[in-house]
Design a protein around this nucleic acid. Sequence first.
DNA 1: ACCCTTGTTGATAATGATTGTCAAAACCCT
DNA 2: AGGGTTTTGACAATCATTATCAACAAGGGT
Lengths: 132, 132
Amino acid sequence: MKRNTWQREAVREALSSTEGFVSAQGLHMTLHGAGSPIGLATVYRALADLASEGDADSLQSPDGESLYRACTTGHHHHLICRNCGLTVEIEADAVEQWAKTAAAAHGFTQAQHVVDVFGLCENCTRAAAAAE
Amino acid sequence: MKRNTWQREAVREALSSTEGFVSAQGLHMTLHGAGSPIGLATVYRALADLASEGDADSLQSPDGESLYRACTTGHHHHLICRNCGLTVEIEADAVEQWAKTAAAAHGFTQAQHVVDVFGLCENCTRAAAAAE
DNA sequence: ACCCTTGTTGATAATGATTGTCAAAACCCT
DNA sequence: AGGGTTTTGACAATCATTATCAACAAGGGT
Ligand SMILES: [Zn+2]
Ligand SMILES: [Zn+2]
Ligand SMILES: [Zn+2]
Ligand SMILES: [Zn+2]
């Protein structure tokens, strides 16, 4: 049976009140900064649980860290600013269908997909142009 | 100036003669098995170079390892068996268009995308079912 | 062919994220 | 409240990757 602890709630709330993706380490630091004595291993476990229950979205940063984000609802993908971390959720029914059929067409089962777009958001694009 | 060493060639060839994606560690083991005394750090460096020169394709496995593959030509995506590493290249014009328009619609520039499908290939699916 | 400058190698240590351990603490049902 | 069971958290262990740095070798000039 799955029990309710203040730790899990703390992680869930810290995650929801975070804009964009965070690493487990990052969330742990945030929580500590707010005075919580929660342990690092617990943050890892809570995030893994949230992700496997579909309450959190996870992806791997380009340098191999696992990043998490509170999942609003349903399955979706992300448009991420590689400079400031701003994240926009994007729907992609077409992509879902494509992934499913592409996997099936080659006999693959238990298909999961990684679909994310990285770029520079409007602000960062302007900033980059100005710094030119 | 960039020099030519047998090590770099060895990595390039080992990579080309590999079906699917390999990790640096995996390639190093392969080379050792073939009698090469090449060092692990060198394999990492060579793969990173190949990737940055566009001669190799790199992606991150779901558990955070960096995987490499000899890059054939052109832009494409992959259907990867998470058990045996078998890789199938898949084209996806629809996805390319979607990625482009989704980024533009939110003011993002310099968009790149990560689109990969992981699953169990036909053989591994059968094997998994048999082991049940 | 020889030398010299400089990029490259590789054994090993260091890093850093993530996971395993396990006794103590917390939960929850009765 | 009591007790079986789950969860926690400090700490050790793992594991991929990167940094070190002295020894080495490629290749341009002589
Ligand atoms: Zn931005
Ligand atoms: Zn999807
Ligand atoms: Zn397979
Ligand atoms: Zn593409």
